[in-house]
Amino acid sequence: MENIKNIILDLGGVLINLDYDKVNDELGKLGLANAFTKSNQIDLFDNYEEGKISEKTFLNRFNQLAAVDHSHNKIIQAWNSILLDFPADRLTMINQLRDKYKVFLYSNTNFTHMKAVNSILQREHSLENLNGYFDKVYLSHELGIRKPKPQGFKHILKTNNLVPKETLFIDDSPQHIEGAMQAGIYAEWLDLEKEDLKDALTRLSLI
């Protein structure tokens, strides 16, 4: 990793802890079982994460698919149940990385989840958001592109004048690793069953 000058980090699973079993259970109770998993999800979630539909439209279409008239707050509570805590040591690690590298965030996410993430950051760390921790934050619903589409990675490279072979991407979803590699970026899969971010950064001699 001696040639690496830039690092792109994922958010969910890599920085903030997630619970896919919990969210699947909660969404299932509302009538959409197995609609959102780590490896696959229905078009409703894809469209929301690419900013193609508003939060209100997302919630209304959720009810249409579930064939039930749930309150919007009930859906939001179930949808946000995937989000757990944001360990303080991961913020410290980002700062350590920025001493040596340009560091970017690229997350498949949506308006609802980012409101909840920022609430967690405020509650746990008195932070409004993550903007101050990265050279640039890229969120799929703002960018209009979800991982693993290579176009998202190419956009980040181009707009920041980054050299692909000097750039490393770290994500806990194997399919996203493939997209980064198609864009010419070095990519490292973070297997959360075996290691966390600190383990991976240490193994790669990045911190």
Rank of each mutant, 00 (worst) to 15 (best):
R123L: 11
K147S: 03
I170Q: 00
H72V: 00
W189F: 14
Y106K: 01
Q77H: 08
A187E: 09
L206S: 01
K158H: 05
D171Y: 10
N3F: 02
N160W: 07
S39Y: 11
F111E: 15
W189G: 01
N160G: 05
T57H: 11
N131R: 09
L9D: 04
Y138C: 08
I42L: 14
D85V: 10
K154R: 13
E142Y: 11
K158R: 13
G13E: 08
Y133E: 06
R203V: 01
D89H: 14
I4Y: 03
E26H: 02
N73A: 14
S126A: 13
D25L: 14
L44W: 02
G184M: 11
Y101S: 09
I170M: 08
E166I: 01
I94W: 10
H141W: 14
L44R: 08
K22P: 00
G13F: 06
E26M: 14
E193H: 13
A88F: 06
L15K: 00
H70G: 03
Q64F: 12
E26S: 13
A67H: 12
E166W: 03
Q64H: 07
A88G: 00
E166F: 02
F36E: 03
T202N: 10
K22R: 14
I42T: 10
L91A: 03
F169E: 08
S54N: 08
L130C: 03
R61Q: 15
E178M: 08
L130D: 05
E142L: 15
L91E: 06
E193I: 01
N73D: 15
Q182T: 12
D89I: 06
L32S: 11
T167L: 08
E142G: 03
H155N: 12
D69H: 03
L105C: 08
M114L: 09
S140T: 09
D172F: 06
K100T: 12
V23D: 02
L201H: 04
T109P: 10
Q64E: 14
V137C: 12
E142I: 10
K100W: 06
D99G: 00
T37A: 13
I82Q: 06
S107E: 13
K149V: 06
K102H: 13
W79P: 01
M1T: 07
E195S: 15
K149M: 13
N3A: 10
M181L: 07
T37I: 01
F169V: 01
G132V: 08
I16C: 11
L27K: 03
M1P: 04
A116C: 12
S81W: 09
L44K: 10
S173Y: 00
R146D: 09
V103R: 05
N17T: 06
F86L: 07
S54L: 13
Q64K: 13
L59R: 01
A183G: 01
E178R: 10
I42K: 04
K115R: 12
P174A: 05
E26N: 13
D21G: 02
I156T: 00
L127K: 01
V68G: 00
V103D: 05
S107A: 15
Q151N: 09
D89Y: 13
D25W: 03
N40Y: 13
P148K: 04
N108A: 09
L130P: 06
